[in-house]
C-alpha cells in the first residue's frame, strides 16, 4: 500500500495557491520579498529552535518510518504561508518579527508537549499589537460565492484527512446563528446577514486557522465548547467593540482555554502521523 501523503503538504499547496490567487485576481499589493522573509524567518527559527532543543543531529525524523526527515519543516512553512496570506506589513521586518515570534511561541508556550497558540495567529496578533507596521485586511477576499466554494473544497480536503471537520462546522454554525439572531433583532434584511457571512476571510479563517489540530482541544465535546467560545468572542468584539479583525483576537483569547478543556475531557493528543483512517507506520511495518 502506498504511503499516505501528509495532510500538511496539501495545506502548503493550498496556501501557496491562495497567495498566488490573491495576488493575481484580488489586487493584493504583495511584495515578494515579504513572502520570502516570512518563509526564511519561519524556517530559520524552526531550525534554531530544534537545534537548541535536540542539540543533536537536526534532521533526525521525529518518528521512525519513511515519512521523511524534513517533515518538521512543514509546519513553519504553513505558518509562513498563512502569515503571507493574512498579514499585511509596511516593512519586511514586521513580517520577520511575526514569523519568528510565531515559531518561538510553539517551542516556549507549550504545555504537556502541546503548544498553546496557533503559531500564525500568535504571530498576527503580536505583529498587529506591537510593531505598528502590520495589519490585517478582512475585506481582501471580498464576498464572492466562488471563493467560499473554493475554500470549502480545499479546506474540506485537508480537514477530511485530519478529521477535524467538526471544528469548522461548529464554529460556523454558532457564529452564523448568533449573527442571524442579531440580524432579526435589528431588523436588517437577510442580504445584510449573508453579506457578512460570505466574507472570504471569515470562511478561510474557519477552514485553515481554527482547525489546526495541534492547538485545538483533543476531545470532540471540548472542541464544540471551544468553538462556541470563539464564535461568541468574535461576535462580541465585532459588534460591540467594532473590531474588524475580531476573529483573530477571539482565537488568541480562547487559545488558553484548550488546556482546561483537555484536562476536563481526556482524549488522545493529535499526531500528524496517526491520522484517522491513515496507515500508520507501525501498522505498515507489520
Amino acid at each position: 500500500m502506498r504511503t499516505p501523503i501528509d495532510a500538511r503538504l496539501y495545506q502548503i499547496g493550498f496556501l501557496a495557491s491562495f497567495l498566488l490567487l490573491g495576488f493575481i485576481t484580488r489586487d493584493w499589493q504583495l511584495h515578494i520579498e515579504v513572502v520570502l522573509t516570512a518563509i526564511a524567518a519561519a524556517l530559520t527559527t524552526q531550525y534554531l529552535c530544534l537545534k537548541l532543543k535536540n542539540s543533536k543531529n537536526l534532521l533526525v525524523p521525529l518518528h521512525n518510518g519513511d515519512l521523511g526527515g524534513y517533515s518538521q519543516f512543514y509546519s513553519p512553512m504553513i505558518t509562513a504561508l498563512g502569515l503571507s496570506v493574512l498579514l499585511r506589513v509596511d516593512h519586511p521586518w514586521a513580517m520577520a518579527f511575526a514569523a519568528t515570534i510565531a515559531i518561538i511561541s510553539k517551542f516556549l508556550l507549550q504545555f504537556n508537549q502541546k503548544h498553546i497558540f496557533n503559531p500564525a495567529n500568535f504571530g498576527i496578533v503580536c505583529a498587529v499589537l506591537f510593531t505598528h507596521e502590520a495589519w490585517v485586511s478582512p475585506g481582501q477576499w471580498g464576498e464572492s460565492m466562488w471563493y467560499v466554494i473554493m475554500f470549502l473544497i480545499c479546506g474540506g480536503l485537508v480537514l477530511k484527512k485530519v478529521g477535524r471537520w467538526d471544528t469548522t462546522i461548529a464554529f460556523l454554525s454558532f457564529y452564523f446563528a448568533m449573527e442571524a439572531v442579531r440580524n432579526v433583532y435589528l431588523g436588517w434584511t437577510w442580504d445584510v446577514w449573508s453579506h457578512r457571512m460570505m466574507s472570504g476571510s471569515l470562511i478561510m479563517f474557519s477552514f485553515f486557522m481554527i482547525t489546526d489540530p495541534r492547538t485545538i482541544p483533543n476531545a470532540k465535546p471540548a472542541r464544540i465548547i471551544w468553538t462556541f467560545t470563539i464564535a461568541l468572542i468574535t461576535f462580541i468584539l465585532r459588534n460591540y467593540f467594532f473590531m474588524t479583525t475580531a476573529v483573530f483576537f477571539a482565537l488568541f483569547l480562547a487559545a488558553p482555554l484548550t488546556l482546561l478543556l483537555d484536562w476536563i475531557f481526556k482524549d488522545d493528543r493529535f499526531d500528524w502521523f496517526n491520522l484517522p483512517g491513515a496507515i500508520t507506520p507501525e501498522i505498515k511495518s507489520v
Binding site: 489586487d27 505598528h132 475585506g139 471580498g142
Partner: peptide, 14 residues
C-alpha cells in the same frame, strides 16, 4: 495619522 485606510467589509481595489 497612521497610514492608508480601507474598507473592511468590501474589497478595496486600486
Amino acid at each position: 495619522p497612521k497610514g492608508r485606510a480601507e474598507v473592511a467589509n468590501y474589497r478595496t481595489v486600486r
